Amino acid sequence: MSVVIVIPARYQSSRYPGKPLVELTGASGEAKSLIRRSWDAAQAVAGIDWVIVATDDARIRDHAEAFGAEVAMTSPEARNGTERCAEAIANLGLSPEIVVNLQGDAPLTPAWFIEDLVAGLRGDAGADVATPVLQCSGRMRADLIADRAAGRVGGTTAVFGHDMRGMYFSKEVIPFAAGDFAADAPTPVFHHVGVYAYRPAALAEYPGWGEGRTELLEGLEQLRFLERGRKVLCVEVEARGREFWELNNPTDVAKIEEMMQRMGAD
């Protein structure tokens, strides 16, 4: 088995309880749950051998199985999606080349983001983990700044070096850049797309390390890899005219539905 996508989903989200079951209405007027849209996004990715929903909640399990998903039940003790992915892979006894964590709050994730991510990790033998980054337009940067000004935790931003190795990830808008940017102009800010590709050995070690200091401060699971000196490859992806946003807060539902309407996405 080569590449497995795991979609970790928990009901008790601190910011948005029940988020995986929230319905989003597409351009055709059809409403589908967030977990269903994540499953559909995973099915559209080329070169994937298996897609699994990993959850600790019977409501999510029953809903996912009803639309045909394969579900792996995991412990409620998993502290984040990476730990849940590690548990699901271990429980199922799988030995894939690469494990992809497609978190269930990014229904607008295009298939090529994940395809480019897998290709990036395959092409860099020194990396333990890979994750996509998307250069922000002035509009996207302004939206991120507006979220923070309103006291909302919106998207995550990434800073990386010339070798594309991740240096830091934050829920603040970094790096700082003075002034404003035109709506469609590129900016020095990169939006971190909440998808990960792991080498199985690094994924298996992750739960045993315990939570790191900056991981706890930021609430970002990928920082545990950096704190342990593991190499996180940032893979720049292209929007190709698609809009992208993650569902982090209840207010994001209307934003994402508006994007789907503009793009004609169902």
Results as ranks from 00 to 15, higher is better:
220 L>N: 00
155 G>S: 09
223 L>G: 00
144 L>C: 09
214 T>K: 13
149 A>N: 13
189 V>D: 01
209 W>E: 12
183 A>S: 12
196 Y>L: 14
208 G>K: 07
201 A>W: 01
203 L>V: 02
135 Q>F: 06
143 D>L: 13
182 A>F: 08
148 R>Q: 12
184 D>P: 04
139 R>Y: 05
142 A>C: 01
170 S>Y: 04
170 S>P: 00
169 F>T: 05
195 V>Y: 05
185 A>P: 00
168 Y>C: 02
182 A>N: 06
222 Q>M: 13
166 G>Q: 06
205 E>M: 06
153 V>S: 05
159 V>L: 14
177 A>F: 06
180 D>H: 11
195 V>R: 01
186 P>A: 14
176 F>C: 03
148 R>S: 06
174 I>Q: 14
171 K>W: 11
216 L>V: 15
221 E>S: 15
202 A>M: 03
190 F>D: 01
155 G>F: 05
146 A>Y: 07
171 K>L: 07
177 A>I: 02
185 A>C: 02
210 G>M: 08
155 G>C: 05
208 G>Q: 12
216 L>K: 15
143 D>V: 04
221 E>N: 09
143 D>R: 14
217 L>I: 15
179 G>A: 04
145 I>A: 11
223 L>H: 03
134 L>E: 08
210 G>S: 09
180 D>I: 10
136 C>K: 00
168 Y>F: 12
142 A>I: 04
218 E>P: 00
132 P>I: 05
154 G>Q: 03
220 L>E: 02
190 F>E: 05
223 L>Q: 01
222 Q>A: 12
136 C>A: 14
210 G>P: 05
151 G>Y: 13
190 F>Y: 15
146 A>P: 00
148 R>D: 06
223 L>E: 04
164 M>H: 12
157 T>N: 08
175 P>Y: 14
219 G>C: 05
155 G>W: 07
135 Q>A: 06
212 G>T: 06
184 D>Y: 06
141 R>T: 02
138 G>Y: 14
220 L>C: 00
161 G>A: 11
171 K>T: 13
181 F>L: 02
154 G>Y: 02
166 G>S: 08
192 H>M: 10
182 A>L: 13
132 P>W: 08
185 A>I: 02
216 L>F: 12
147 D>L: 03
181 F>R: 04
164 M>Q: 14
139 R>Q: 10
187 T>Q: 08
141 R>G: 03
180 D>G: 07
221 E>W: 08
135 Q>H: 04
191 H>A: 03
214 T>L: 14
165 R>G: 12
219 G>Q: 08
191 H>C: 08
163 D>R: 13
214 T>W: 07
171 K>Q: 15
146 A>V: 03
179 G>Q: 11
183 A>R: 10
180 D>T: 14
219 G>N: 04
152 R>G: 00
163 D>H: 07
134 L>V: 13
150 A>Q: 14
220 L>F: 07
211 E>Q: 15
142 A>N: 11
211 E>F: 03
132 P>F: 09
181 F>N: 00
174 I>M: 15
166 G>T: 10
158 A>P: 01
202 A>Q: 01
203 L>F: 08
177 A>E: 14
214 T>I: 10
210 G>N: 10
180 D>P: 00
191 H>E: 12
184 D>S: 13
207 P>G: 08
212 G>D: 08
190 F>C: 03
189 V>R: 02
134 L>F: 07
137 S>I: 11
180 D>R: 11
